[in-house]
Design a protein around this nucleic acid. Structure first.
Lengths: 232, 232
DNA sequence: TTTCCATAAGGTGTATACACCTTGAAGATA
DNA sequence: TATCTTCAAGGTGTATACACCTTATGGAAA
């Protein structure tokens, strides 16, 4: 299962002429991305019928996708009301960030595969795109770079269970960070560019521990920015 | 969501005359326990219709329970075939144990609540039951003690996300351990008694770090026994 | 005898009707 | 006027019929 899913997860497929019938996993991925991108704000309500109409399927696959999102902690299904996008309170958010920084350090201690030229190339491409953001900021583009960056690193993790958890924690926290990034374009862009630069070196050196400490640090920096915005 | 679920999770409710209608969460919990108890062996196939008959509900709530188990990694749903109880290969098992030992150490570094007299009392009761096992071994009883022991410790974890993960990792690995325990009664019982004794002291001292290192150690010991059995 | 193919049996995936739950608003009452 | 009650609207939860997928089996062909 995990395999099939991860595949779909990392490359949404269904390109060009394919137009394969959507299944509940596709729907899950799309809804998850919308939540991360804040197209669905925390606290907003999703209705199964509306989604069923939009995706041209019955409520059944929609319910499956929503239930999965619920298990992952991104939404909460309430009988007679609807499915509510999780609104993290301050404490929960702090807990998640704390966990992410701690687990980032573990990343280097768990098994990782060797970094390849392909990894370097992809990071290089992301760096270029990130630098371009300095001139004209665009949340969608910022998100896409961040998202791809996450999976470049996630992909070198060999321990499958750890990777699942690592990905999930990213999705839980992502929304908050993009919200902050919107109100701090310059700082967010600079941090992203620096992170990619640092990671590029570590990947070239094929130093998993270095990668993990870099992740730890930038997650920590992000949290500081979240805190800073919270004060306003 | 998490709250409601955890509640049901820790105390299955529906006591005595209540007989509240079962929902998909009850079913999920029962199926999960059966998988852990090896009533459903790895590789065995569950059929939605059979389960629907047994629980006197339609396939819909059964499917929800199974899907949740799939997200948690305990089963794999295959179209046209059935739902297969996950059979962990050696590598996957090693990965999970590795992760559990690492995360046990984190447990002490994340927030925990103060240990109470109630905790001490419950551990004391478990210790008595564990000691009784030395004379007459019984897998069901062994499992129940282990299960309750897990939740006594899990309950002091404040970081909700960490606790979810911690619980899940326990459920993923539990089956394997009970299988080993069946073939090593004496050793398993001795280890359990020692672990509870050690934890009792740490809980009395209200020393979360000590608790976390004890957990790390006994998870590590368990893995060694799994390895030992694998060799035969 | 072996191999291939058609097919039937029995499983999950999906659509849909209906039951039940939640909530807000209108109306009755103090 | 304030408050309580009632009820209707619209949501999720469940049961069920049917579509589609997978696989084992038996017979035809090499």
């Amino acid at each position: 299962m995990a395999n099939e899913y991860e595949q779909a997860d990392r490359e949404p497929k269904r390109g060009a002429g394919g137009s394969r019938k959507v299944n509940s996993l596709d729907i899950h991925t799309q809804l998850r991305d919308r939540i991360c991108l804040l197209e669905y704000r925390p606290g907003s309500i999703l209705r199964e019928n509306e989604l069923a109409d939009e995706f041209s399927v019955s409520r059944t696959p929609i319910r499956e996708a929503l239930q999965r999102l619920a298990v992952e902690g991104l939404v909460e299904v309430r009988n007679g009301v609807g499915t509510i996008v999780t609104a993290l309170d301050f404490d929960e958010l702090q807990e998640i960030y704390r966990l992410r920084t701690e687990m980032a350090v573990l990343l280097g201690r768990m098994g990782t595969r060797a970094c390849t030229q392909a990894d370097t190339d992809e990071l290089g491409a992301l760096l270029t795109r990130s630098q371009r953001l300095t001139q004209s900021f665009n949340v969608r583009e910022y998100w896409d770079i961040n998202h791809k960056l996450h999976f470049v690193i996630s992909d070198i993790i060999l321990n499958r269970t750890f990777r699942e958890i690592w990905d999930n924690l990213y999705f839980r926290a992502a929304r908050t960070w993009y919200d902050v990034a919107k109100s701090m374009n310059a700082i967010a862009t600079e941090l992203l560019t620096m992170e990619i630069t640092d990671l590029l070196l570590a990947v070239r050196e094929n130093d998993a521990e270095a990668i993990s400490y870099i992740k730890r640090n930038y997650i920590s920096y992000s949290w500081q920015r979240v805190l800073q915005k919270e004060k306003d």
